[in-house]
């Protein structure tokens, strides 16, 4: 199940990225996490074949944010039939960059003693939200006004029964920082910032109306194509 916690960075439940039927018995499920500045790809490898599996290795294709394995895929002992192994693969963001579609698409190759297998997965953008993403207030106001309105995108976050303070502290766990909070005509307005590993800043306004579980999220960014993925991370 999911291990998303109220305080730490959100981690989605693992899903099957490579079904055994497509990989001669090798099943891979996984998720992504970020803890104190380090990104990892948390995997479970399961051997559903009749023979032992060994000599594992992993490689990523170029991707939008230069995600790359920061260590080899270490499976210490051979994987016997019906056996599973959990591995947390550290990642860095200094790999080669190529804009993907969708932006958060990651193409992965995994090999073992049997063959090489390919799959792709979508990573949540918040694994790229850095710990020093709290913009200084004056800079926020100037940047907010400087980014043209055409670069603003609005989204609805539905069915969220948290208070503004609870939302603010939960988001901070995933490196989305509340810069200021105002209340206008009963509506809570949170002004927030985040920064991506490649240095792109995203500014946000989160509008929370009492007794309305649907929040309005407005995102402003000089690279507006990241906005929908930031929204998905919020959601």
């Amino acid at each position: 199940g999911g291990v998303g916690t109220l305080s730490g960075s959100y981690v989605a439940p693992k899903t099957v990225w490579l079904p055994a039927m497509k990989a001669k018995g090798l099943e891979i499920s996984g998720t992504f996490s970020r803890q104190v500045g380090s990104i990892s790809m948390d995997l479970v490898l399961t051997n559903k074949a009749l023979q032992v599996m060994s000599d594992f290795a992993i490689q990523f294709n170029r991707n939008s944010f230069g995600l790359a394995p920061a260590a080899p895929l270490q499976v210490h002992a051979p994987l016997a039939p019906n056996q599973s192994v959990e591995i947390s693969l550290p990642l860095n963001t200094v790999g080669s960059v190529m804009k993907m579609d969708p932006l958060n698409n990651l193409q992965v190759a995994v090999k073992n003693n049997i063959d090489v297998f390919y799959f792709s997965t979508l990573y949540p953008l918040h694994i790229l939200f850095v710990e020093d993403g709290k913009m200084e207030r004056q800079m926020f106001l100037a940047t907010w006004k400087d980014i043209p309105n055409e670069n603003e995108a609005q989204f609805q976050i539905k069915d969220c029964a948290l208070s503004a303070d609870a939302v603010s502290s939960k988001l901070q766990g995933s490196n989305i920082f509340t810069i200021a909070k105002r209340n206008v005509e009963g509506q809570d307005m949170l002004y927030q910032s985040l920064k991506l590993t490649n240095g792109i800043w995203v500014l946000a306004e989160l509008r929370i109306q009492p007794s309305n579980p649907s929040f309005t999220l407005s995102l402003k960014c000089r690279a507006p194509e990241v906005s929908q993925y930031v929204y998905q991370a919020y959601d």
């Binding site: 004056q138 106001l141 200021a180 105002r182 206008v184 307005m189």
Partner: peptide, 20 residues
């Protein structure tokens, strides 16, 4: 004094966003 100015600026921003 600067902080008060910034506080005021955020209040104006929030106000303007609610009543464009």
């Amino acid at each position: 004094e600067m902080d008060d100015g910034l506080d005021e600026a955020f209040s104006r921003l929030a106000q303007s966003r609610t009543n464009p």
